[in-house]
Each structure stands twice: as structure tokens, then as C-alpha cells.
């Protein structure tokens, strides 16, 4: 390439960089505004012109976490989302592996069926779930919400993992079989280590879904197992002084999951690259 082309490329890169900066800033405005809202009194929150310079107060953050039991809800949210991941990803991976190893003409319909189930409006499942929970005496318990979340999460997990397993050549299983492995051993020793990036991705998406889910959490939890989204929604509405509180709560609820994302971001891209989207 000529020197000219290289410098033009360089210039393009700068332009892209600047454009991205602008876009990112605009895109994050709602978040930035929410952070500012959480730091001011409601009186200054909704003014013309918008109040940008003000005396920040941490009062609302303090109130959310220390006077409203948010640590307890955080604990509940963590138990429920980790529980969901721990059940959903292993179960989904097993099924996805088997799906990837049976003939395509049988796997196809099963996958389609899974997806059809996924498209049913979730809110219509809330009532049957509640009826079931009442029948089993499990309302306001962790396992009930975990099971419900696993169930709605399974189709996506299976689909995602199916893509990964397809990328892993069948020759590997066959070689393992020739060495005398059972299918379980072949899966555990040969396949699973290769599928790890995929499992990270599946875990991350399950985590996002279960940490943020609202409707089932509202209906199936009670005083003891209430999760963060339900707790935050309880500040929405009527009282305007509660809006600074909801902003503070909303910022608070994001922090744990942002931390997780920061740590796992590299794995997310790598995992997605490795195969989930090639199937």
C-alpha cells in the first residue's frame, strides 16, 4: 500500500475514534443523568434549565442501602441468579451436547420446538407458576423462583451451547469412544474443556436474565426472598421524593453486574467468537 493510503487509513481511524466518543457520550446520557438525579434533591432533579451544578448529596444512596434493607435484597438476588446459572448452564449444556450429536433431522425439530416455547408471552406463565408454587407450598422460597427462571432460560442456553458443540469435531468423540470411553466420559474429559468459553457466555446471559427479571420475581417472591428489581420498583410511582431514591437504587443495582461484566468482558467476546454464533 502507498504511503498515502496508510495516512488516509490513519485519518479514518481518528475520525472513527471521535465519532465513537460522541456516540458513546450521547448513548450514556440517560445513565449519567440518572447518576446526577440520585445525587440531588428532587426539587433540583426536574428543572428548566436542567440543573447541572448542585451540591451533591449521598443521602439517598445511604437511605436506600441502610434504611431499606437493600443488602438483604442483594443477597437474595445473588442467591437466585447464581442458583439459576448453576442449574441452567450444566443442564442446558448436557442437552445441547446430545442435540449436537444426534442426526440433524431429529435435532432441528427439537430446537424449533424449544424456540416456539420461548416465544409464549412470559406474563401468561406467571399465573400457572403461582398456582404450581402454591400447590407445592413453595411460594416465597428460592428454589421456586430459580426453577421458573431456569425454565424460561433453558431454550436460549441450549441454543447457544448447541452452536458451540457443533464447532467441536465429532472425530474427537469418536476417538474417545475408540479408546473405550463411555459417552459420559467422552463428554467430560474431551468435550467439556473445549466448551468452556461457550459456557462462560451462556452463564453470563443466564446471569443477566435472572438478575434483572421482574415479573416472576414479583409474583413468586415474598418478604423473605424479594429481589432487587422488585425492591426498586417499589419506589416507583406516586411519591416524587422517592424518585431520587429509585435513581439511587437503580444505580446501586447496576454496580454488581457491571463489575461482573468488567471482569468477564474479555471472555464474552472470546466466547462469542469461538462459536456460539456460527451454528
Amino acid at each position: 500500500m502507498s504511503v498515502d493510503a496508510v495516512s488516509r487509513r490513519q485519518r479514518d481511524t481518528y475520525l472513527i475514534f471521535i465519532a465513537l466518543c460522541v456516540f458513546t457520550f450521547i448513548n450514556l446520557t440517560p445513565l449519567i443523568w440518572a447518576v446526577l438525579t440520585s445525587l440531588k434533591d428532587p426539587r433540583d432533579a426536574f428543572t428548566i434549565p436542567p440543573t447541572i451544578i448542585f451540591e451533591p448529596t449521598l443521602e439517598y444512596h445511604y437511605e436506600v442501602w441502610f434504611e431499606n434493607d437493600f443488602f438483604r435484597y442483594l443477597k437474595n438476588s445473588l442467591i437466585i441468579s447464581l442458583g439459576t446459572v448453576l442449574v441452567s448452564v450444566p443442564a442446558g449444556s448436557l442437552a445441547a451436547y446430545a442435540l449436537s450429536r444426534i442426526p440433524r433431522r431429529s435435532a432441528g425439530p427439537i430446537l424449533s420446538a424449544l424456540f416456539t416455547i420461548r416465544m409464549f408471552p412470559h406474563m401468561l406463565l406467571a399465573i400457572p407458576f403461582f398456582v404450581m408454587g402454591t400447590f407445592l407450598g413453595m411460594i416465597d422460597t428460592y428454589p421456586l423462583l430459580i426453577l421458573a427462571l431456569v425454565a424460561i432460560n433453558q431454550p436460549f442456553t441450549i441454543w447457544l451451547m448447541h452452536g458451540f458443540f457443533l464447532e467441536i469435531p465429532r472425530d474427537l468423540d469418536e476417538a474417545a469412544a475408540i479408546d473405550g470411553c463411555t459417552s459420559w466420559q467422552a463428554f467430560r474429559i474431551v468435550i467439556l474443556p473445549l466448551a468452556r468459553p461457550g459456557m462462560t457466555v451462556a452463564a453470563l446471559f443466564s446471569l443477566l436474565l435472572s438478575y434483572n427479571e421482574f415479573l416472576f420475581a414479583l409474583v413468586l417472591t415474598g418478604t423473605t426472598t424479594k429481589t432487587l428489581p422488585v425492591a426498586i420498583a417499589s419506589f416507583g410511582g406516586e411519591d416524587i421524593s422517592a424518585w431520587s431514591l429509585s435513581a439511587a437504587g437503580a444505580i446501586g443495582i447496576m454496580l454488581p453486574i457491571v463489575l461482573v461484566m468488567l471482569v468477564l468482558q474479555r471472555h464474552l467476546v472470546r466466547g462469542l467468537t469461538a462459536g456460539a454464533v456460527k451454528g
Binding site: 445513565l31 432487587l228 429509585s246 437503580a250 443495582i253
Partner: peptide, 8 residues
Amino acid sequence: PHIVTPVV
């Protein structure tokens, strides 16, 4: 923005 709880 994708991480933010939908209700929020």
C-alpha cells in the same frame, strides 16, 4: 445500557 434492569 444492556445491563440495566429493564424496569429501571
